[in-house]
């Protein structure tokens, strides 16, 4: 369970162009559920996602992850928490060009010093699960949008994290691939994972597998979304 208490995130704090991306926000995300953050661009939902995933710290307020207060953790613990708890799928996938699909998937485990063959096996198994094992040795720049996303998902899952975080996952996909993505998400939910996504795609937030939709506008949660 992830709980936000009165969280504010201000960019360029103290400067003239300071603005509050998130303002005094309370939020609860339940474990083993799918939560969608929806809202127009610039509403602060991506910022919210970075706060949930421990990639940025709030300016004020507190965030609890699994009943642990994380806002005051030193950087090293935050990194450790990101490694153990969250898997990220970025909107632009953020794969590292020039590396193969397999190498990209293995990336999060690379600095941990585990035997490489073991990591390879796990990465390969994930690629099989996502049906792109045939592309394992291709360079990522040769992939189609759907394949790139599966690679990004495989990379997010290689740590076997309890929480998967995805930023606009269907923005670069056509309808068929978007449905395929939702199937993957459903499968993950069935395995007991928590999923947090941002999306303004109705195909996502209207889906029946989604447990909670939170509408964000101007850094606040809208109580009565249309």
């Amino acid at each position: 369970m992830i709980v936000f208490e009165n969280v504010t995130k201000t960019y360029n704090e103290g400067a003239e162009n300071a603005f509050n991306a998130i303002l005094n926000l309370d939020l609860t995300i339940n474990s083993r559920e799918i939560t969608v953050l929806r809202g127009p661009s610039g509403s602060g939902k991506t910022t919210l996602l970075t706060l949930i995933g421990g990639m940025a710290r709030p300016t004020s307020g507190r965030i609890h992850v699994a009943e642990r207060e994380v806002t005051s953790l030193p950087e090293r613990f935050l990194t450790k928490m990101r490694q153990d708890t969250f898997g990220f799928v970025f909107q632009s996938f953020n794969l590292i060009k020039g590396l193969s699909v397999l190498d990209n998937v293995m990336l999060p485990l690379t600095p941990l010093g585990r035997p490489r063959n073991q990591i390879r096996k796990e990465a390969y198994a994930l690629l099989e699960r996502l049906h792109i094992q045939s592309k394992a040795h291709n360079l990522v720049e040769t992939l189609s949008g759907g394949e790139a996303q599966r690679t990004a998902i495989a990379r997010a899952l290689i740590n076997n994290p309890p929480v998967l975080i995805a930023d606009e996952p269907t923005a670069n996909l056509d309808t068929g691939l978007s449905y395929a993505f939702m199937d993957i998400i459903k499968e993950l939910k069935d395995q007991g994972k928590t999923v947090v996504m941002t999306s303004h795609d109705p195909l996502v937030w209207k889906s029946e597998i989604v447990d909670q939709v939170i509408s964000v506008r101007d850094g606040k949660i809208e109580s009565n979304p249309t």
């Binding site: 193969s100 490489r116 063959n117 390879r120 096996k121 390969y124 040795h137």
Partner: peptide, 13 residues
């Protein structure tokens, strides 16, 4: 680059 090695690299850099 190895295209066949399934679980083991042919060589490591």
């Amino acid at each position: 680059m190895s295209h066949k090695g399934k679980t083991a690299d042919r060589f490591r850099y």
